Computed example of a mutant assay.
Amino acid sequence: MARPPLPIGAWGKISRKEVEPGIWRAMARFRDFDGKTRQVERRVPGKNGAAAERALVAELLDRANSVGADVTRESRLSAIVPLWWAEQDDKNLADRTRDRYTDVVDNHIIPGVGNLRMREATVPAMDRFLKTLGTSSGKATAKHAKSILSGILGLAVRHGALDSNPLRDVSPVRTASKAVRALTVDEARALRAGLQIWQEGKNAAGRARPQDLLDVIDVMLATGCRIGEAMALRWSDIDLASTPATATINGTVIFAKGQGLKWQAHPKSEGSRLTYSLPAFARDMLFRRSTEVVRNPYDVVFPSAAGTLRDPSNYRKQWNKAREDLGFTWVTPHTFRKSVGTILANSSGIDAAAAQLGHSSTAITSRHYVERSLAAPDHAEILQAFGATGDG
């Protein structure tokens, strides 16, 4: 009769044998995570094989832990978080994403449900936690926590500690969605003209205003890139000699905890690493800057006044003052990205807009980056058929 298979992560009887003078082998059958049973052995010098057996047991325990024997229904959620973090380390997370994960895990998930055992991580428990978190810390935080918890408990499912992921059945965390508002062509022209004049003036203290707010905006209007990506644009990323001129988004400027402002060697998403053909107004602006601006050690096109990386947050503060004076108080740096998405969707289709913005799905573009038109398509001639008279 065939022997019944060992459970996953279990091993059979250990045997010892002296294979050479003073060299002992300990061996046992072990059933791996792929369901295959293998012979595992360790050879160690010794008098009677005890050391070889101890080495084998240590190896078998390590292999058993690697297939989930350390995650059970009695494991606390907080004990699984390090395993989840180990999986994230393989994903090359952006620094800001990692900081956000850390904040939500350390300040909300661990204090809120970290002491629950896996058998206690039920749909009602998770639903109650997320609703409470949404009330106390905001729906956006609750939505982020739900995503992270789904990953943590999904890991528990893969290790056999849960039969299914309870996050699949909790109530959706609904956040209020704002209608997309983008600049029309006429508004963009008026804003650019007004900003050009505004930059030439002085502030209330008689000091010169920032001279390059418009230049940064022109890069965003020419590409659809984000403000951090515009600040990270380097002269080495630009080819003004080609026809048309091009600019490649290769990174972004972020503020990382413990590190300060840094140039991140990839944009927000891998899909955003794109080479853009530049319209003439952006090409001409960059050519002018290439002859006027003093180069800096970072090679960025838009450095700070001190020649260092420029903080996107500082740019936003400067822009907030300008927009108040110009009467465009609703316009943020992200509005320019939405304006690019809207004009391309209306002229070339949603696929073209999604490709320009580096989105993996047109649904993202349509929902968050294209202003909805309130005018229905002109089908008056077709619909006239309902009101036609006579036999025709």
Rank of each mutant, 00 (worst) to 15 (best):
G22W: 02
G22H: 09
I23P: 04
R25S: 00
M27R: 15
M27S: 13
A28D: 12
A28Y: 14
R29C: 07
F30S: 08
F30I: 06
R31E: 05
D34E: 13
D34K: 00
G35M: 11
G35L: 11
G35E: 09
T37L: 10
Q39P: 06
Q39G: 10
Q39W: 09
V40L: 14
V40D: 11
R42V: 02
R43V: 01
P45T: 13
G46A: 07
G46R: 03
K47T: 08
A50L: 15
A51Y: 10
A51M: 11
A51V: 06
A52W: 14
A52T: 07
E53S: 09
R54L: 09
R54N: 06
A55Y: 05
A55L: 05
V57F: 03
V57D: 02
V57C: 03
A58Q: 09
A58D: 13
E59C: 07
L61F: 01
D62M: 11
D62K: 14
R63E: 01
A64E: 06
A64V: 01
N65A: 03
N65Y: 00
S66W: 00
V67D: 03
V71E: 02
R73F: 00
R73H: 05
E74A: 08
E74S: 07
E74P: 10
S75H: 01
R76D: 03
L77W: 06
S78C: 14
A79D: 14
A79H: 12
A79L: 08
A79W: 07
A79C: 03
I80E: 00
I80V: 15
I80P: 02
I80S: 02
L83E: 04
W85R: 15
A86E: 10
K91N: 10
K91Q: 15
N92M: 12
A94E: 15
A94V: 15
D95V: 15
R96G: 12
T97G: 07
T97F: 02
R98G: 13
R100Q: 14
Y101P: 03
D103A: 10
D103L: 08
V104E: 04
V105P: 08
V105S: 04
D106S: 06
D106L: 04
D106N: 11
N107W: 13
I109M: 08
I109N: 05
I110V: 14
I110R: 07
P111C: 11
V113L: 06
V113M: 07
G114L: 12
G114P: 11
